[in-house]
Design a protein around this nucleic acid. Structure first.
Length: 477
RNA sequence: GGCCCCUUCGUCUAGCGGUCAGGACACCGGCCUCUCACGCCGGUAACAGGGGUUCGAGUCCCCUAGGGGUCACCA
């Protein structure tokens, strides 16, 4: 039974706290989503906090990229982005408080000495940890550099009450006297997190399972400061097909990369949320539906394997029902990127094109690829298709069709169809026999939307031109 | 290795003591069909193993195995 101490009120405050040492990856995005939907469901507050205390690896580039990713996803944060580097006074103040209360102490042991302790403990089969040498040692020489450690209890246990995992018990004997302020004066991660969560009045800490082991350390900070602990919910992680932690090795792992590949943010959100969360048998959810139905209780506790094929399927579902104007805009910008001019065809025609392509495209990239031939001046002939269909045997019927097509005044799908049927009847051939050579001549390949639609969308002049080009090619051979 | 978490079709999951174990992706058939798709119809496929508790266990308890996470003056 999952313990539920949730309230239906608007005092709920959650945060998503990535470090800007890399792009927002999909695992992080999913955690952010769970936080965001939880906040929205309860009409609470969603906060974005950037943990940029790692000065070696944090960059402004990634800071911007993370914000851009959320912008694309359409997630708006109620507070933030806060940055830890701008909150140093807060940590310093808390550290001083702990030092003066005796909860923390100065440690002058060098890293080498501490490592030696750990190795010794490990050799003796004990939990490797700092042995407390400096706990009760008063500073002798103020010039000796020191760090600050938090005194951890030697006996008893620290309990993390997790909404998903229940009560997780950690023996205090396993806990280390963790460093809260380094020798260089900078605060450490587990310390900053606790201080920030206290300061920001976070009520629910929803984060990846990999932080569960960190939690007792943070709880100790709360206790030392005599602050109540928040609710914790440690969610399962996303794994690759090999059951290893999802990473670049498994393909795209950054949110923005999915944007580049032609995914719709709604589809990514739907997929990510549905990975580990469910609401009966429903697969497709709008943002509003997720907000209405989201609850931590329905989160799955086990790790989930990322399945790109299902994402692709969902993406196509969203493309199929996407707003036409949006698809035309996507088409236009995609064509421009490839140096093609969308204006070659009218807006109405382009709308017709995306309508034909929406059931044939798993991504926007697919759609643009499928529309290319409409906008190229010369078709790129697929050699295999040309050899098979652009043959002397087919040239007579193609020529006849070409001549009939020139007589059409209104080059509509219906009229093109009528001409095809007339030629088929007179020549006693089936549609397939006529359509495939024409398709190759017009599109360069063997797959496209329906042949009548394709021709009418392309327009009379360009259709005739392409047929002529193909016929000339046959004659040359 | 210590500690912690997890375990239903290949994958995502429904299930909250009594179900022919349901849905979705993928896969395999079929229909539709000018190609490719879409759509529609159908199919293969799972409770990790072992002990308990119970009239009855996928559902509760224990053990084993497997997977994952974490053990820093990184975040």
């Amino acid at each position: 039974m999952i313990k539920d101490k949730l309230l239906m009120n608007s005092d709920i405050r959650v945060r998503f706290a990535p470090s800007n040492t890399g792009h927002l990856h999909i695992g992080g995005a999913r955690t952010a989503l769970f936080n965001w939907f939880f906040a929205r469901h309860h009409a609470g507050t969603a906060i974005l906090r950037i943990e940029d205390t790692d000065r070696k690896r944090s960059t402004e580039k990634y800071y911007d990229a993370i914000l851009e990713a959320f912008d694309w996803l359409g997630l708006e944060w109620d507070e933030g982005p806060y940055r830890q580097t701008q909150r140093m006074d807060l940590y310093q103040e808390a550290a001083n408080k702990l030092l003066s209360s005796g909860a923390a102490y100065r440690c002058t042991c060098t890293p080498d000495e501490v490592n030696a302790m750990r190795e010794k403990a490990r050799a003796e089969g004990k939990t490797p940890k700092y042995d407390g040498t400096c706990r009760d040692r008063y500073d002798k020489d103020p010039n000796v550099p020191f760090c600050l450690r938090l005194r951890a209890p030697d006996a008893g246990e620290t309990i993390v009450d997790d909404i998903l995992a229940g009560e997780v018990v950690f023996e205090n004997s396993q806990l280390d006297d963790m460093v809260i302020v380094r020798t260089d004066g900078t605060p450490t991660y587990n310390f900053c997190v606790a201080i920030d969560d206290i300061d920001m009045k976070i009520t629910h800490v929803i984060r990846g399972n990999d932080h569960l082991s960190n939690t007792p350390k943070q709880v100790l900070v709360y206790k030392a400061l005599e602050e109540p602990t928040p609710n914790f919910a440690h969610i399962s992680m996303i794994l690759g097909p090999d059951k290893k932690r999802l990473s670049k090795r498994h393909g795209a792992d950054s949110v923005l990369e999915y944007k580049e590949r032609g995914f719709l943010p709604e589809a990514l959100i739907n997929y990510l949320v549905r990975l580990g969360w469910s609401h009966g048998d429903q697969e497709v959810f709008s943002k509003e539906e997720i907000i209405a139905n989201f609850s931590l209780e329905n989160l799955n506790r086990s790790a989930a394997i990322f399945n790109p094929e299902k994402l692709l399927w969902l993406n196509q579902e969203y493309i199929k029902s996407a707003d036409g104007d949006f698809l035309v805009e996507s088409l236009d910008s995609g064509l421009k990127e490839q140096g093609l001019s969308p204006d070659l065809l009218t807006g109405k025609t382009r709308m017709g094109i995306v309508d034909e392509l929406r059931t044939r495209s798993k991504t926007l990239t697919d759609m643009i690829e499928g529309a290319r031939f409409f906008f190229e001046n010369e078709v790129e002939l697929d050699e295999k298709a040309a050899v098979k269909f652009l043959t002397p045997e087919n040239s007579a019927i193609m020529l006849k069709l070409r001549d009939e097509l020139t007589k059409i005044e209104t080059f509509s799908t219906e009229n093109v169809k009528l001409v095809f049927h007339r030629v088929m009847e007179e020549e006693a051939v089936k549609l397939g026999k006529l359509a495939q050579p024409v398709r190759v001549a017009i599109t360069g390949g063997t797959t496209s939307p329906g042949i009548f639609e394709t021709l009418s969308l392309l327009g009379k002049d360009r259709t005739i031109h392409r047929l002529d080009t193909a016929l000339a090619r046959i004659n040359e051979k």
